[in-house]
Design a protein around this nucleic acid. Structure first.
Lengths: 173, 173
DNA sequence: TGCAACCGATTGCAAAATGCAATCGGATCA
DNA sequence: TGATCCGATTGCATTTTGCAATCGGTTGCA
């Protein structure tokens, strides 16, 4: 919250941007979950952020240039949040972070399948995903004719794991 | 500090490890600064961590399996902290983070030169650096006959920038 | 031998951040 | 018209942080 004890070190400055418990969670939900509205972020994330913290972090991320806010034309009260290029370029970092967490931390299978696919896809997949995000959030044209979106692919893999687990421990046996 | 509101998501779990203001700063100083002792970490880092916070984070990072502590044979009171493999594999993440910060945040020239070199070196340089860290911290043999250490190279570049700036604005004009 | 400096922490206390539940005024929907 | 949803905001208890002083012990030096 401070922004003052800064030291010009890239890592330190990066930590001042998302070195807290929630900022990167919000960005994760926007990037991978496709969430754009306050309520979606409030109720959608598994971790359960409080509304005042969410409001504060959205404001802070806007001030830092990671997000922009606009009126949702379909609903006079709805605000729609968009990622900036600055936030979209976090995708490789999030991919690395997910890969590291998958190796070293007790991740759950259904929630780490996306990290696994993202890791396996490597930089080309990240680039495709970033292009899709630029399209969604910045209105850029989609130059690569593409097939299913990366997010849809990740989501489908997640659903497949959830469905398999719901059928019981030994589904195809 | 919680470790409870966990959600199995790799990114969330990663944030529970170093999603705070100081943990990653400490690891940065150990990795890039070569610091191994409490006092070095306390007085060495530009950002000025408090001693109680440092003690708490070192303990926490040990509990998480990122660090180990041992007696320094040269001094009965000195403790020497070592990185584990889990911490050493953060090097690519730190490299990416530094690269991102260098692009998007107001980094200082002398403190970002290391991030720049690390970025330009790419994965091969990171691997060499990680091997050196494994040698220093885990006692592994150095298989690649190597030339100057990565840390020394980064440090020399930093010193060169500092020296150039100390000579005044237009040194070679 | 004495004494200052240094070792890794720990303590007490003030300030700030966070978590939580209730609530706001307005817009939308039935 | 009334229930529901919208993005927040408020008040308050709890937790975390920052800061300075200090701890008991070790070391280096005169």
């Amino acid at each position: 919250m401070s922004l003052d004890r800064r030291s010009g070190c890239p890592i330190n400055l990066s930590l001042e941007v998302f070195g807290d418990r929630w900022s990167l969670i919000i960005l994760r939900d926007m990037i991978f979950g496709g969430r754009r509205h306050f309520r979606e972020l409030l109720n959608g994330s598994i971790e359960g952020i409080a509304s005042n913290i969410l409001a504060d972090r959205l404001k802070r991320l806007m001030e830092l240039g990671m997000l922009t806010k606009a009126d949702d034309p379909s609903h006079k009260q709805k605000a729609i949040y968009s990622l900036t290029e600055m936030a979209i370029t976090l995708v490789p970092i999030l991919a690395h972070l997910g890969a590291w967490g998958r190796v070293w931390l007790p991740t759950s299978e259904e929630l780490s399948i996306r990290a696994e696919l993202l890791e396996k896809g490597g930089p080309p997949l990240w680039e495709k995903f970033m292009d899709e995000l630029r399209h969604e959030h910045l209105g850029m044209p989609l130059d690569t004719a593409s097939g299913p979106s990366v997010r849809a692919t990740l989501q489908a893999a997640y659903q497949a794991v959830v469905a398999r687990k719901a059928l019981g421990a030994s589904p195809a046996a």
